[in-house]
């Protein structure tokens, strides 16, 4: 009996196989299955994109209410840009995302290096704390931070709920993601490379600067991007750690949605979806160019 031949992937199924003498041929059935699968998959994709398409379309619709198309307009966009508060919220969102991403990327990268390269007590505890931080529902994190800030404030009169507390909260969940992403990359790195640098006379800092960091930089960049988008996206932790004057875009959308559907929100959503796609596509192109 011939040994079963390795198959690359699902697509290969429909190719006529000369090696099937002894195995029953299901090529016909496979073809049907493949067709069905493809139809099903595209229906799921339609499900994934229907809401996004609807929002984008309605943001250009003249009619304020309902979904019937009454003509093209950019009115909702101009109203959005005329709304100075929205710009302020956008600014807040970006400040929070930038600052928190910077801090969490540095701390998380260092933590990943320490976790992979050194043995110390409580190491497993720390690792499980990271997993837990990633998995535990954000509402638990949000209210526990709220409790912390409230208690500390009642003791020393600081901090007020503000952009600062939001940033502190975001860093707290970003660290775990950055650490785990960078750690995955570090574990692929041959430790002999760092040893070679030490061997050639580079001290620990220069070894890190000249060998470790350049080689894990894809992981660091991925971690930072993930952290950045998590910050932009976060509603729940922000909700519990924000005060008056520290509204971010997700908070604004939430309160606006509570009041009801409006075309300005369609427009804002469309812009945010556009920005997401732009960043992702640029990111993909960037990685592809770097190999």
């Amino acid at each position: 009996m011939p040994a079963p031949k390795a198959r690359g992937a699902w697509t290969n199924w429909s190719e006529p196989g000369g090696n099937r003498n002894s195995t029953p041929s299901y090529a016909y059935l496979e073809r049907i299955m493949k067709r069905l699968l493809s139809v099903y998959a595209w229906l799921v994709f339609a499900f994934l994109y229907l809401p996004i398409v609807v929002i984008v379309a309605l943001s250009f619709n003249k009619s304020r209410y309902g979904v019937s198309w009454t003509g093209f307009t950019l009115e909702w966009y101009s109203r959005l840009f005329a709304n100075e508060r929205v710009l302020e919220y956008l600014g807040n969102t970006l400040v929070v995302a930038t600052v928190s991403t910077t801090v969490s990327t540095i701390i998380g990268t260092l933590l990943a290096v320490g976790l992979v390269r050194y043995r110390f007590r409580l190491q497993n505890g720390l690792r499980y704390l990271l997993y837990t931080t990633v998995v535990v529902p954000d509402i638990v994190m949000g209210i526990s931070l709220l409790l912390l800030f409230a208690e500390v404030r009642s003791l020393i009169g600081w901090p007020r709920l503000s952009l600062l507390t939001i940033i502190l909260g975001h860093i707290s969940f970003q660290i775990a993601y950055v650490t785990l992403v960078v750690r995955a990359r570090l574990m692929l790195l041959d430790p002999a490379l760092e040893e070679a640098a030490l061997d050639l006379g580079a001290n620990n800092w220069r070894t890190f600067r000249e060998v470790t960091l350049p080689l894990i930089s894809p992981g660091v960049v991925s971690g930072a991007l993930l952290a950045f988008s998590l910050s932009l996206d976060d509603f729940v932790v922000t909700f519990f750690t924000s005060g008056s004057g520290s509204t971010t875009l997700p908070l604004y959308i939430y309160s606006a949605v509570k009041l009801g559907v409006s075309p300005e929100i369609h427009a804002l959503s469309t812009l945010m979806v556009g920005a997401t796609i732009l960043v992702l596509v640029l990111g993909v192109l960037f990685w592809r160019n770097r190999g």
């Binding site: 002999a192 490379l193 040893e195 070679a196 030490l198 060998v211 080689l215």
Partner: peptide, 20 residues
């Protein structure tokens, strides 16, 4: 004495050349 202050150098089994 840390490796970077020892008067020895190493040729590693899998070369350990810096890929970057």
């Amino acid at each position: 004495v840390p490796p970077y202050r020892r008067p020895v150098n190493t040729v590693f089994q899998n070369y350990a050349l810096f890929p970057h």
